[in-house]
């Protein structure tokens, strides 16, 4: 059973690394934010898996709870900031949209 949970953790880690591709080559900033949000949610799981393997879940679960809350608030704040930021420079938004498509 322990081995199976290790396998799950490794699979999760590999899939998170694949998500990083979207963060690196996402055409716009919001695409990158989506990737970061997904990676952050999965890190919560990874923390609990680490706690289960080390036999100290009761400590790691608090860290995971704080991390989940922090991830949610960070993603909300980033979305809000990006919205404000683009509203001010709404004139050059279309040009910048067409430029960096890879």
């Amino acid at each position: 059973m322990e081995k199976y949970i290790i396998c799950i953790g490794v699979a999760l880690l590999i899939l998170m690394l694949v998500t990083l591709v979207r963060v690196i080559r996402g055409p716009s900033t919001i695409d990158r934010l989506v990737g970061v949000n997904v990676i952050g949610t999965k890190s919560t799981i990874l923390i609990i898996i680490m706690g289960t393997l080390l036999g100290r879940v009761e400590m790691y679960v608090d860290i995971a709870l704080a991390y989940a809350l922090l991830n949610f608030i960070a993603s909300l704040a980033a979305a809000r900031f990006f919205q404000r930021h683009r509203e001010e420079s709404v004139v050059d938004a279309p040009q910048r949209q067409e430029g960096p498509s890879c």
Binding site: I30, N37, I48, V57, L65, A79, Q83, Q97
Partner: peptide
């Protein structure tokens, strides 16, 4: 506590999706 985290994420994740979606729509992504 783990179940509580699951419930929290089940509420928070669609809300974060919605916020990001709204930001993208506002900034005029076609």
């Amino acid at each position: 506590k783990i179940i509580f985290i699951a419930v929290l994420i089940a509420i928070a994740s669609p809300t974060a999706t919605h916020a990001l979606m709204d930001a993208g729509y506002e900034s005029g992504i076609k």
